[in-house]
Simulated scan of single mutants.
Amino acid sequence: MGFGVSGATAVVVVGLFVSAGIFYDAAATSYEAVDEAEDDRAEALLEQRNTAVAVANAAIQSPGNALVVTMENTGSTTLGVPETTLLAENVVVPHDANATWAVESDTGTEVWLPGETLEVTVSRTWLDTTFDGGDPTRVKVATDTGVSDAAEVR
């Protein structure tokens, strides 16, 4: 064997080592990404299992015939008020001046702790505009963890 064959063999061997290093790095990175995603999914499932909400009352009430929905956080997960969605007849109730969102009568908080009550008062103006002067017959609350509850409006 001459120098040409030995040199070519060395180049091939070095190429195999470089390829193996690149493959190992890519495989390790992929495994870490999958492992992290599985951990995130397990954490989200645990949070979902620990979340529970219940619509305690939904009624059209005076003054002004506003829709008042009272919900309870019956789980062990702290929920965010901005991440909580209220639907009236499958229409999202806005988090703006058309509805007042209050946790234990506090309209300034964005945290809904376990055992606390969230009350949403929806203005008559929004109801009239959205439902052509009528009233919704059903409401549903949904959390950012995907847990929900529904009730008939009385």
Rank of each mutant, 00 (worst) to 15 (best):
M71I: 07
V11R: 13
G108H: 01
V92E: 15
V5Q: 15
V122K: 05
A8P: 13
G75P: 07
D132F: 09
W112E: 09
A102Q: 15
E72N: 15
V139P: 03
E152R: 02
E32C: 01
S76M: 07
A59W: 00
A8T: 13
S123G: 14
L86W: 01
T145N: 06
A20G: 11
A8R: 15
I22D: 09
E36M: 04
R124F: 02
P82H: 05
F131M: 15
Y31Q: 11
V14D: 08
D40V: 02
A97C: 01
A52Y: 01
Y31T: 12
V68Q: 00
S6N: 13
A28S: 15
A88Q: 06
D106A: 09
V111E: 14
R138C: 00
S6Y: 11
G108R: 02
T129R: 11
D132C: 08
V69Q: 08
R154H: 01
S62K: 01
V68C: 00
S123C: 10
T130V: 08
V34D: 11
T117P: 03
T51H: 01
T107D: 13
R154D: 04
V139W: 02
W101H: 10
G146A: 11
A8G: 13
V139N: 05
V91P: 04
T85F: 08
A150L: 09
L79Q: 10
A28N: 15
G80A: 12
S30R: 12
A37P: 14
V14W: 03
V12P: 04
D96A: 05
D39Q: 09
G15W: 10
T143P: 04
V122Q: 08
M71V: 10
A151C: 05
N73Q: 11
G64Q: 07
E43L: 15
V91G: 09
E36Q: 14
G115P: 11
F23S: 14
T130P: 11
D149T: 07
Y24M: 11
G21N: 10
A42R: 15
D144E: 15
T125R: 12
T117E: 09
A54V: 05
V81F: 02
V120S: 06
V139L: 05
N98E: 06
T78F: 04
G7R: 12
A56M: 10
D106K: 12
V68M: 00
T137Y: 00
E32S: 12
S62W: 01
T29P: 00
L86E: 08
L118R: 07
I22A: 11
E38W: 13
T51R: 03
A88D: 07
S123R: 11
V120G: 06
N65L: 07
G15N: 06
V34L: 08
P136W: 10
L45F: 09
L45K: 10
V13F: 08
W112K: 07
A8Y: 13
T130K: 08
P82K: 04
V153E: 00
V93G: 05
N98R: 02
G15L: 11
R154F: 00
V11L: 12
V141N: 07
S62M: 01
T143R: 07
A56P: 00
V120C: 06
D132M: 13
R41K: 05
Q48N: 02
V139G: 05
G134R: 03
N98G: 04
V13I: 08
I60M: 04
